[in-house]
Design a protein around this nucleic acid. Structure first.
Lengths: 222, 222
DNA sequence: ATCTGTGAATTGATTCACAGCC
DNA sequence: GGCTGTGAATCAATTCACAGAT
């Protein structure tokens, strides 16, 4: 494990920086699949829609991965980012709520291909309990804590209606889950050491309409 | 239309502020459904997980909606936010890509209930063309521009594989679409006057693993 | 007594610009 | 000549703190 010294290890790394790293990793993976060996911050910038200076500064929090006059080695930088983000291992997830959204998540193959495996699934609907969907047997949500304590997961995915989301988050927290991906349209309370990310397409739509409103009318012909 | 004077109309309103407004609107709607008439910035803060000062400052970009010593009238403030965001009308959407993700979007009823109606749907798969899903007939993507120019929409939803996403975005832009919700795992280029929001759960997961990695092992029992 | 609205102060993030290396 | 890594400078967002309204 080649550890780069002279690096600002002490500095608290801003969350926004962490949020951008997976984006860089994705671009690098694309470059790697094209057999490109070297990339400059400028090229990476045009792919990721981030400025070159920002990319360089972001990376500098973790080490000195580039070569002056040349750029970054694609494979090596990708490896570093994987290491930093912990992407070179699999992660176990529990899904709570197997309604429309939950089912789409289970059937979506974009998670597993990146190492995120839904290994447990829960729902309130007794009809669904016992059904097997994509190699996961659905259990009743009342068994959640018991099963999660016995067979822990790293990340919880909340896909229940808004009114139930807080209770589910609380249960996950009690089970020691430290990261939650929430699809419910509500921002749940949780302890500061529990990471939370919201997936909220309606909020996204509702903020875009602000800018549309300014325009004359509904989508005009050119 | 009561227009509040003395307001900083000239100031460019930061995008982050716009992004928070729908969140406030949602909290207010919840309060309204509970028949609560008045709310303070502090109470709204605990619901939305934003600080009271930030809420007050955000709102101050648009007017003076509160009463000192009392707070905000729930119904009135909600009305103002609807007006500001353009939520008191319906919006027409086109969905491109009716695979797993696209189908989930079509079947999800959380869009329509907020006034966002998918009125057109496209896919490359000829098998799907002609099928009717949730009151929308799927058309072939080659007809996209023709149909969108004839029957314009306000917002495009991109739910195609990453490799095709840029071409779809380009086509939407040519049709005059000024707002795009993108589910493809890639940040497409677009002109500066076209709003774009990403829905990217994998990126969200990948940034959370950074914080998990620091912890001892996979979710431990307490 | 309470709570808003807002300049001022602060904190945080981004960009600049250039020394140093390839 | 080209490109990284990084302090310094700039720009942006958040928080403070209090005057003023009810």
């Amino acid at each position: 494990m080649t550890r780069n010294r002279k690096t600002a290890r002490a500095t608290k790394i801003p969350d926004v920086v962490i949020d951008r790293l997976p984006l860089y990793a994705r671009c690098l993976a694309l470059l790697q699949s094209r057999r490109q060996e070297v990339v400059s911050s400028t090229e990476l910038a045009s792919m990721s829609r981030v400025t070159p200076a920002q990319i360089r500064k972001d990376l500098s929090y973790f080490g000195r991965f580039g070569k002056q006059g040349r750029g970054y080695n694609v494979g090596q930088l990708l490896g570093e980012l994987w290491r930093i983000l912990g992407l070179n291992r699999d992660w176990r997830l529990a899904l709570i709520g197997v309604g429309k959204v939950g089912r789409a998540i289970l059937e979506y193959d974009g998670f597993a291909s990146e190492g995120f495996h839904v290994v447990q699934a829960f729902d309130v609907d007794h009809q669904m309990v016992g059904q097997k969907l994509v190699s996961v047997t659905i259990r009743h949500v009342s068994e959640l804590e018991q099963r999660l304590l016995k067979d822990p997961v790293d990340i919880g995915i909340v896909a229940v209606p808004a009114v139930e989301a807080q209770a589910v988050v609380d249960a996950l927290v009690r089970c020691g889950v430290k990261a939650i991906l929430n699809y419910a349209p509500l921002r749940p309370h949780r302890p500061p050491d529990v990471e939370l990310r919201q997936i909220d397409p309606v909020l996204a739509l509702q903020s875009m309409t602000f800018y549309l409103k300014a325009l004359k009318g509904p989508a005009k012909r050119r």
